[in-house]
Design a binder for these strands. Structure first.
Lengths: 163, 163
DNA sequence: CTGTGTGCAAACATTTTGCAAGCAG
DNA sequence: CTGCTTGCAAAATGTTTGCACACAG
């Protein structure tokens, strides 16, 4: 989905302010610090990750982890962020201003290759529509054995005469 | 169900016993009760759901929730079950004896809809080929907000005007 | 000024672990 | 008999809530 450009911070900030205003909420230094940190790192964060990053970057704000959680939930409710769950290990959040990307994962060596496929994205939208889902995110991971490991496997098989 | 028949219980049970034996583990009444209950309901369960169902059906076993967790993890490790995470709301498990399918997941209420799309499966093969991956498995989960929750959100927003 | 936002500590919900007693093999 | 398995209670983990003070609008 490369058609959509990543939103500039300024736009993002304006969107956020608008959302706050229209919900009777206030724009605070902590909320901006969190948004800014999310934006600059453009990554998947656990609330704890983000907590430490914000603490490091804006120590004078002394932002509590409670505020991190509250702000992340606020952002998610308003579709400025999305999250993916990992069971007991919690959630990871990311800003919702980026195109989707997926992963090919080698189960032997752990190598990860990112890819993008607009056809699949399109089909996903179609499926969501069919079930009247408002799609916010997706997780697609293809597991397999990478080229390199396939070759190593062959070697090992030759060496492993006795099994 | 559809095209591919679900595995018969007997086969499933044999597979389970084999796994137990080959890991030096024991076949117990509780473990069978859990497997059987999962099989008969063919649904997505939280550990708690399953706990009550097993309790209801096999009250004399007095199965603890600890055993439910331990058995579910055992099943998952051995690919007889799969799970989907929901952050604070925990995980949902399903038996892995059904034909391949993917999931649409509502991030508000946790509802899960199963779907199947051969076109996407085909495209995944194509991507794997492009990167010379030998594909063994994949995970595709579409996250979004289901029809019902979209309506509730709208309601809540309307109600929140006067608060 | 009003009422929202904040940090702290305590509460919560889910899952895991330590332990003594119970059973499968 | 041996040692895996169980249920219970307690711990661990990740997240939310109650409260009094702080601060945005």
């Amino acid at each position: 989905m490369k058609n959509i450009e990543a939103l500039a911070y300024k736009e993002l900030l304006e969107t956020f302010k608008t959302i706050l205003k229209s919900n009777g909420l206030k724009f605070t230094a902590q909320r901006e610090a969190i948004l800014r940190t999310l934006y600059d790192h453009a990554d998947h964060f656990t609330p704890e990750n983000l907590y430490f990053l914000v603490k490091e970057r804006y120590p004078q704000l002394n932002t509590g982890i409670t505020t991190i959680y509250r702000t992340l939930n606020l952002l998610e409710e308003n579709k400025l962020a999305t999250s993916i769950s990992f069971g007991t290990q919690g959630k990871k959040f990311e800003l919702g201003n980026k195109p989707h990307h997926d992963h090919l994962i080698c189960t032997k060596c752990g190598k990860i290759i990112e890819f993008e496929d607009t056809q699949i994205e399109h089909l996903q939208q179609k499926i969501a529509k069919k079930y009247n889902f408002e799609l916010t995110d997706h997780l697609m991971q293809l597991y397999g054995i990478c080229e390199e490991c396939q070759q190593n496997q062959t070697k090992q098989r030759e060496e492993r005469v006795d099994i």
